[in-house]
Design a protein around this nucleic acid. Structure first.
Lengths: 176, 176, 176, 176
DNA sequence: TATGAATGAGACTTCATTCAT
DNA sequence: CATGAATGAAGTCTCATTCAT
């Protein structure tokens, strides 16, 4: 990846996250990246190709994040790490765009991206099972949904939404 | 609202919900509505104006839905009704577009629309307080977030996502 | 066909004939026609659609020209009229663009457009047969090819190429 | 001419012949030739320069082909050789692109290239004169036009156009 | 010699919006 | 009220060409 290529990806990531994929023009991306518009297409063929490259990057990053959790054996630890990873990640402001895009893009592409969280879901379900929960899979899905919902608020509700308290409450509910 | 006006709104609602606001052209709306493109602008001045009209309609409808809950005095009933209203509404296929748009538009406009749920949030918080929960407001927000997250999955995860089971589990957690 | 539509077609015809289809930009057409570029696409969907409309027009016109010949019963008349129609047509300067395009477009689209001359070919073959020529179909094809070749020179050879003399010679060869 | 230069010319020849000059991008040529795009411009300055080089090559080749005919003294032989050369050349499939381009390029550049056939034309006219034809120059031009027309069909009419029969008929007409 | 990143102009096309009818 | 022709700006993408390496 050349230097300019990186600039393109960064600019696109920021703009897609802020304004949305459709609402971001390639000329805006080029201007923001300080690059000629044509270069985008030399490297990515398509505006969509650019998006896909960014999404792919995201997927790799997510897998990396979850790898640690999936290998964990203590069930309580699995749940705790899941919640913590999620909360930690959202707090790094320099990665905010990246994560916001992951949520936003779901609604623009209408692809939920189940497979991305599949390993995590399985690990969570197993953990809940070991802890004796009645419906471990549903339980796991519910937890992930709750965190999805919290993220939505976190990213869209401008006025100080303090996610920390919700995280704490959530942990208490799972006796962590 | 004339007959044609209604056709416009319905077509726009469906298309905005399915394809997104930005991705829906006024010409597509006109074609879908069986109306000339110019007519849209006679009635709504703007594409944005059309969206606002639809959002306004939505707000009215949501207020109506919640009015009943807000007046409820039994705290457990408040929580139960909140969950049930949400689950009932998502199940009516003829209203699916309407609700989907509510979720989708948040991400396109980056406006969470806090005020829409404010009364419901207050009622829930009061209910949790009366039931002796330690952090009633956080508790209320967490519940709403969970339902937001469930809706996201419901609307975006194509392969049979059975929301019913999650609803049941959720109720159990609140001892309903 | 509205007034502006006609202007578009005329400008396109002229430019396609002069510069070629590929080498003519829609913006040039719009400018030449005194019309906004967008209008071209409202009426023709595509640059290609515009070309097709023009070609279709041509086909209709050609059919009309040939209709007369095909109905002729005297075999010598059939051949004479074929040659004369061809020579007359090429001489009208206001139609030059139209005919030039017919020839030029063959090479850009790589479609010979056999079907266009099929009825004429049949009529010629029948005429040659009645006149006792040994290979009437080949004879007919050869005549048409000769006229194709003459047209090529006529349209491309800038310095005075006097087609009249060739026509006369051709007629003599068929004893007309 | 280096090896890569040859690859460029060959690729360009094929693409220009198949798709046309305007419709062939330098990037397509580079890809087809297995060469970097920049190299084309190191060797030819221009896309147009590349075309001219190819055309020049063609001219040399044509002169070579005709040299033999021009030196012939027997008038009937001149005519026969002209027709045969033309028919032989079109039958070699590995040279098809080369010849097709000669025809095609006329229409894209609107240059008939009279000078290329001038010596041949003169030789033919002389032959017809010696054979006592009334209008030897017109006669010569007519013959060349016929062959032009046949070539057009040969190159553009996909469904089996058997040029052999036309050649035979043509010869008969000149009592060869 | 050869590459391939980079560019700027311009290609085709879509879009929201206006306006005469 | 309603149409649909018309527009100008902007959108995505392609292209010939340049240049540092």
């Amino acid at each position: 990846m050349t230097e300019k290529q990186e600039k393109i990806v960064n600019a696109a990531l920021e703009l897609f996250a802020r304004e949305g994929y459709k609402a971001t023009s390639t000329s805006k991306i080029a201007k923001e990246a300080g690059v000629s518009e044509g270069l985008i297409f030399r490297h990515y063929e398509n505006k969509e190709g650019l998006l896909e490259a960014i999404i792919q990057q995201g997927e790799d990053r997510i897998k990396l994040l979850f790898a640690d959790i999936v290998l964990e054996t203590d069930p309580k630890e699995v749940i705790r790490k899941t919640i913590d990873t999620f909360s930690k990640v959202n707090k790094k402001p320099e990665e905010a765009d990246f994560w916001k895009l992951q949520y936003k893009i779901k609604w623009e592409t209408e692809v939920y991206g189940e497979h991305k969280v599949e390993p995590l879901l399985k690990a969570l379900a197993k953990a809940f099972e070991e802890l004796g929960y009645a419906q471990p899979l549903i339980e796991a899905q519910l937890l992930l949904s709750t965190m999805d919902g919290l993220a939505t608020r976190f990213y869209l509700q401008k006025t100080g939404f303090d996610i920390e308290q919700h995280i704490e409450l959530l942990k208490k509910k799972y006796e962590l």
